[in-house]
Design a protein around this nucleic acid. Sequence first.
DNA 1: TATGAATGAGCATTCATTCAT
DNA 2: TATGAATGAATGCTCATTCAT
Lengths: 204, 204, 204, 204
Amino acid sequence: MTPKIIDKEIKKMEISSAAIKIFINKGISNTSISEIAREAGIGKGTVYEYFSSKDELAIFAASSWINLLEQTSYDSVNKSDTPDKQLKDLFKHTTSNFIKHPEIISFFIELIGYLQKNMHQNKHLQLIKRIGAPVRKHIVDILQYGIDKKFFREEIAKDLEKTAINLVAFVDGLGLQYVSDPQFFNLDIQINCFLDYFLNSIRK
Amino acid sequence: MTPKIIDKEIKKMEISSAAIKIFINKGISNTSISEIAREAGIGKGTVYEYFSSKDELAIFAASSWINLLEQTSYDSVNKSDTPDKQLKDLFKHTTSNFIKHPEIISFFIELIGYLQKNMHQNKHLQLIKRIGAPVRKHIVDILQYGIDKKFFREEIAKDLEKTAINLVAFVDGLGLQYVSDPQFFNLDIQINCFLDYFLNSIRK
Amino acid sequence: MTPKIIDKEIKKMEISSAAIKIFINKGISNTSISEIAREAGIGKGTVYEYFSSKDELAIFAASSWINLLEQTSYDSVNKSDTPDKQLKDLFKHTTSNFIKHPEIISFFIELIGYLQKNMHQNKHLQLIKRIGAPVRKHIVDILQYGIDKKFFREEIAKDLEKTAINLVAFVDGLGLQYVSDPQFFNLDIQINCFLDYFLNSIRK
Amino acid sequence: MTPKIIDKEIKKMEISSAAIKIFINKGISNTSISEIAREAGIGKGTVYEYFSSKDELAIFAASSWINLLEQTSYDSVNKSDTPDKQLKDLFKHTTSNFIKHPEIISFFIELIGYLQKNMHQNKHLQLIKRIGAPVRKHIVDILQYGIDKKFFREEIAKDLEKTAINLVAFVDGLGLQYVSDPQFFNLDIQINCFLDYFLNSIRK
DNA sequence: TATGAATGAGCATTCATTCAT
DNA sequence: TATGAATGAATGCTCATTCAT
């Protein structure tokens, strides 16, 4: 019965949400299944009706969260802005996740450790790759748009993919540093400074 | 007695060295005190004569390791090269740690989690700040050297600190992505591509 | 309604058959109710419509299986053979169960443990007694036939029951040793050797 | 230090004794490590200082018990008796274990299941083989003694090993039946009846 | 000071059983 | 009647920490 399947998916999401809420606050390995069950308002055993192990739950929870990111990433940018502005907005949106939920980085960081334990399962590799993928794709789009609109030099076309990887690396690294010590610098200022130099070098 | 105190410090370092060797290979939480004691050639209980808890040991070990990094960072660059070359070499040296020992990232990543649990203790904050400090300092030096030698534009002088933070953020983020999936890209190519754009925008 | 009751009995047998198939392969305590339900093509809860507990199911399943054994035991022997030959054939048939399905012994072994837990329920005692009963009965018949045909000495008539118990004990014990270590000896050779001595002492 | 090693062995035996006491009463899988620890008057974790797993403990406990059997088996028989008497005494001694501790059979029976799970580890095979070995050896000795003293026919010499296996099989099977239902027959009577026939066929 | 035996809190996971539908 | 989702008691095992020697 289709309705039943939907219910199952909803319940999975509920448990996943409860899990991620605690994972983010306390770390994956410091969170017990009992705690998750209590947060979700269900019995401990019920968790195992929906997830075969704690690892699977952690991966699913992370995956859901990535899905959410993917869905909201594109909406953060006004397509009619200049590519400069679009890039800046995208960076701001991405890092704003760190500002609003700095714990999320710790979660992903711990998750990678979890995933590496299970790396042999190819699907986890896919998951990790997906983490930055939508943002990379978005960056490529914006850069291409800038080229098309004669904002950016045409020579950069050959480096689009590489550049996207680098920009995502920068944003991730900045977020990582930020969560390590939020008082150390101002995110906006750093982003503006970075983009000033970067845009300066690709602008026509 | 002063000699006693010195002995105590030496022993702490020995335990710390043994600990970090295993931490880096297996992760902090997957390493037991017994294992560390065995590696250090001492009894399990003795560890607690020098460290009040596993957390304290982990933080101390990480701190020692950062000290070591600080000492070796400067030796990686030939001071008589052009600043372009110096920057490239510094980046290569920094990322080469990831290439040779990708586990190191996982270690830092897990460390941050440990530190966050104890964040209320201000000294840990200091520790985190120190992680990137020597590299940042080094970058500032190279950039300043480039300005002095008329390789780089003088206007960048006002952004030295911010730029250093951004460059370190990039290197960290690239390393993070690399350890997540070493097949995804080629570190050297990414660094070259990044520096081409960056240097292009600051060169005279 | 009588038909309903019959249906109920049929369903019990179906579940029981599914259960025993898995019990024999994996052991009773390593078999879950879910597994049995799946094998029987019914829902987990349905099992409890027919059996009040796993224990009851195990006992019922074993009982059914003994019934089956009872039905096949007699067919294994050609009534027109000499009693010597009949006895040898019966032993071979009995032990051949061990050869073909050594797991069966493990099953009975575990079953006895199950039964002992519930020993206070007299009906289980009856069940255990029945396990060897048909073979004992068969042995008594063969021995009596041998006496009647003047193959065996008449004095043994007073020991028929006791002898039957002993012979079944021997066959069981041999099977038990065989399943513990099938490479240790050759079943046929042991049986022939045993019967040579036994028949030698009762032959006229 | 040697004394320490002795202490460790003593403690292992203490835990093993506590374990076997409960194993025999409740079965291996129905006995929890906590229970064993409580019986032994130690903490739960301490059990794992001496045994790496419950399986290992069960096997060690069984092994100790077999050792005990091996030590007492030979003392049960008066070497100056006739071989008839010696054989009878050995059987009585062996079965008396069942009479005094009928639960022991259940324990060994469950143990075999445990061992089969771990059969790949060759040492367990050895353990099982050892269970009957001392009694078999003893039987061979008595039979040989009977041949030498002209009580038994010389032709049986070629069947000593096979006969020993069969006699042990009989005793085991009788014990198995006895523990299944102690009221069903009288052990002594069955043994006497069995030996009467057996001795009759090998006596000179 | 150094030790390692002892500890028990804590955890992931299983599964017989219940019960609302 | 049939179901399977929900449950939580129970369990084997780990390991940081303590403490008697």
